[in-house]
Design a protein around this nucleic acid. Structure first.
Length: 794
DNA sequence: AAAAAGCTACTTTTT
DNA sequence: GTAGCTTTTT
């Protein structure tokens, strides 16, 4: 990492090389509001990164003037790493991070103005729920009538709309109660010095809104605001961006309305339209050149998404050629579907596809079980996304709770979590007494300990002493030392040593120490930097002083404008606060099993942003995908369709779609019909591996599908794994000719003499084209297409 | 305080 | 079908 920027060494053509005209246009736009509609696989991240590099290279921006916002830490890290590799300067002068990460950073720097203690803690979703439960218990609220989960949703929703309790207009008694509890909850958080996720954003927004000099400072600084995944922003995030943009700064927003799949958690696609209007966007650039998928896959995606209304409009194209057809399989049961998937995966592997390049996608997590089971039996390594994450494990949360108490003893969530873990004779009754006292004196539980008398009081005092001792002993320790000390002094390590199945947990605790060491090194702290003081950067003579705007209304001293000197870019938090924030804001990997060479199993949501050589989209049934619950929501079906669009566009070369006639769901067998999405795909791109049965014929005249549960190779019309044949498939050649003739395998046809039937095979081309048709009443026959007057039934 | 039994929910999820 | 939670039992 050099701190001397040598701009003359940068080679301009290299940066813009290999960009297509649209990408080039986007990267080199003037500093004005711009909306980049970036289709799936269109090189969105590349444009974003090159844009930043270009701005700096051209001298149009200094790193300190850049603010780039992403949704996930992963995306932020990737952006940071790629920029660091691209630019010969220290990229730390830029603010690149998630909305929450950046707001945290700002709130730490201005905690006084924001009305927060320097050591405020961040509640993750689980912490927040337990805080709410504790609140309701204290107020004797009936959890049956007012479920804590609903209140949590209510509060988060209000905050994401920018509404404080006083701003919510409650229409009925029920909502009035919720507003009342919202108010009490906010007071509790304030007293404890904790903030939940939406609070980070709202508090930061209000900080800027209510503090003109501070707002002016940041507006003057962040001349270039770039936003990734703009379609996923919620109302509050949009308002925050708008505030930072002010009248003078430009926002470079990148997004794809067709990939908006998070409306259910507050994402507002409408922000794209609003942005266009409110910012008078003159530069709307569509990135429609796709570098990921073959033609048939893209055609399928394009035609499907065309069924949605109110799109900003976009059509992906590729130079890659048609490629393989999209293969479709109808299974009798979910088990059989899994069996087919595994056979196809085996075939893919045998033709050289890497396991990790194969993904099995499903709409809901419950569907993974059957597939996992079948994969295990077949001895194929796999990896499921979406399990418990590292920082969410109970032993880790326990250890973090001790660390939090050292930093902020008023954090009652942390206090309640470990006051009696490991057990130290402080039972439910003692804790209730303490909670009562805390309520009486309107203070935290830790502060209420002296008010509890008797035996309960003395055991509680013992706990207070323990925390006090930890605080004193760790005063000068580095972060990893602190973590190691706390794990031992809390009794956690001893507890898990004696526990029968504590070995894994013990290892995780050791891993936490490693994580702390890794954090210290990644943040560039010295190894012995005390965990609980704001560190001195190399070269700095005094600790950075954060002068708040209220101390002197005319001065806001933050980080100095000379961004290239790390000493001038002060930290805004202690290593411990940073680490605790990191633990809350980035819960870690959520991969159940490690191992690179494994088939990837995940929900469609989790697959967003990823790509695979071969993709299976499973469970394509009405009620499941599209999900039945989506029918109740406004635009629910359109979001399901976007979800399907996301799923399809994950595939590079091969796409498989499957559904099952019956499926185990919630402990009982359900009978489903195939997803409507099949009818929205271009039929000429589909290759039915099982006969396509028309909706009308489903419950009549079929005698084939019963009794094949075990032997999926015996499915009618199914001729074995499609990949076992070489890539230049004869079958596919047939498909081409079939497309010419207007017919395809699996298609329902009508013959004036033989009646209704299904095409089971096609042969030859042009005038020699023949079709094998299985008629309902007259058996299978070969017919010359030039002679027989076959009519498509569709 | 730990273990066992009973009850209930159940789409998607990052921060 | 089953995980997670609460209640009951030891």
């Amino acid at each position: 990492m050099t701190n001397e920027p040598p701009p003359t060494l940068w080679k301009m053509p290299e940066l813009l090389n290999n960009l297509n005209p649209e990408q080039h246009a986007a990267v080199t736009l003037p500093n004005e509001p711009a909306l980049i509609l970036a289709g799936a696989g269109s090189g969105k991240t590349r444009v974003l990164i090159t844009r930043i590099a270009w701005l700096i290279q051209q001298g149009l921006a200094s790193p300190a003037t850049i603010l780039a916002v992403t949704f996930t830490n992963k995306a932020a890290r990737e952006m940071m790493a790629r920029l660091q590799a691209l630019l010969p300067i220290d990229t730390r002068g830029m603010w690149i991070g998630t909305f929450h990460g950046l707001c945290n950073r700002m709130l730490r720097a201005h905690h006084r103005d924001a009305g927060l203690p320097a050591t405020f803690q961040i509640l993750d979703t689980a912490d927040q729920l337990s805080a709410i439960k504790r609140l309701m218990k204290g107020l004797n609220i009936d959890d049956e009538k007012y479920p804590a989960k609903n209140l949590q949703y209510f509060i988060n929703n209000a905050k994401e709309q920018g509404l404080r309790p006083k701003d919510v207009d409650a229409t009925d008694n029920f909502n009035r109660k919720f507003v009342e509890l919202y108010e009490a909850y906010d007071q509790q958080c304030q007293r404890e010095g904790v903030v939940d996720f939406p609070e980070l954003l709202l508090r930061c927004f209000e900080l800027l809104a209510h503090n003109p000099p501070l707002r002016a400072h940041y507006q003057a600084r962040f001349r270039h605001i770039l936003v990734d995944e703009f379609q996923d922003t919620n109302k509050l995030q949009y308002a925050w961006l708008k505030m930072l943009a002010g009248q003078t700064n430009s926002i470079f927003a990148v997004g794809d309305d067709d990939q908006s799949i998070y409306a259910f958690r507050g994402a507002n696609v409408g922000n794209m339209r609003d942005f266009e209007q409110e910012f008078n966007v003159r530069h709307l650039i569509k990135l429609e050149q796709n570098y990921r998928s073959h033609g048939h896959i893209l055609d399928a995606a394009n035609q499907l998404i065309a069924n949605n209304s109110r799109r900003l409009g976009k059509n992906l194209r590729t130079d890659a050629g048609h490629g393989e057809p999209v293969r479709v399989y109808e299974a009798t049961t979910d088990t059989q579907e899994a069996g087919w998937i595994v056979e196809e995966i085996k075939a893919l592997i045998s033709t050289g596809t890497s396991r990790s390049e194969v993904a099995v996608l499903y709409r809901s997590n419950a569907q993974s079980r059957t597939i996992e089971h079948t994969l295990v039996n077949a001895g194929i390594a796999y990896r499921v996304y979406g399990g418990l994450r590292f920082f969410e494990r109970q032993e880790i949360k326990h250890a973090l709770a001790y660390l939090r108490l050292i930093d902020n003893p008023n954090d009652d969530t942390a206090f309640s979590r470990v006051v009696n873990f490991p057990t130290r004779g402080i039972g439910a009754r003692s804790i209730e007494q303490l909670a009562d006292a805390a309520r009486l004196y309107n203070c935290s539980m830790a502060a209420a300990i002296p008010y509890v008398a008797g035996k309960a009081g003395s055991s509680l005092a013992g706990f207070a002493n323990l925390i006090g001792k930890m605080r004193a002993e760790t005063q000068q320790m580095s972060l990893p030392e602190t973590v190691e000390y706390v794990v031992r002094a809390s009794g956690l390590s001893e507890f898990y040593q004696t526990e029968r199945e504590g070995q894994d947990r013990l290892e995780n605790l050791q891993e936490l120490v490693n994580a702390a060491a890794a954090f210290v090194s990644e943040e560039g702290y010295g190894l012995d930097t005390p965990a609980r003081s704001i560190p001195l950067r190399p070269g700095a003579t005094t600790a950075p002083e954060l002068v708040s705007a209220t101390d002197d209304p005319n001065t806001v001293v933050l980080d100095a404008p000379n961004f290239t000197d790390p000493a001038q870019n002060p930290d805004t938090m202690t290593p411990l606060a940073g680490f605790l924030s990191h633990a809350s804001l980035e819960a870690g990997d959520n991969q159940a099993q490690a191992g690179q060479e494994a088939v990837q199993l995940m929900t469609v949501h989790a697959a967003k942003g990823l790509e695979f050589t071969a993709v299976f989209i499973t469970g394509l049934e009405e009620g499941l995908f599209p999900h039945e619950n989506s029918a109740m929501e406004t635009d629910g079906l359109e979001e399901e369709r976007r979800l399907m669009y996301v799923a399809i566009t994950r595939a590079k070369e091969r796409l498989y779609l499957s559904f099952a006639q019956s499926r185990m769901l919630h402990g009982q067998t359900r009978y489903n019909i195939r997803s409507r999405f099949f009818d929205e795909l271009p039929q000429e791109t589909l290759k039915w591996l099982t006969p396509k049965v028309e909706a009308g014929a489903r419950w009549g005249g079929r005698s084939d599908n019963a009794g094949y549960g075990r032997d999926w190779f015996a499915r009618p019309g199914y001729t074995g794994p499609s990949s076992s044949t070489p890539v230049s498939l004869p079958a596919f050649a047939n498909e081409q000719r079939a497309a010419e003739s207007g017919f395809r395998v699996g298609q329902q046809v009508f013959h004036t003499k033989f009646g209704e039937g299904t095409i089971t095979a096609l042969e030859g081309g042009g005038t020699d084209a023949k079709a094998q048709v299985k008629f309902k009443r007259h058996g299978e026959k070969w017919l010359a297409l030039a002679v027989a007057k076959l009519q498509a039934v569709e």
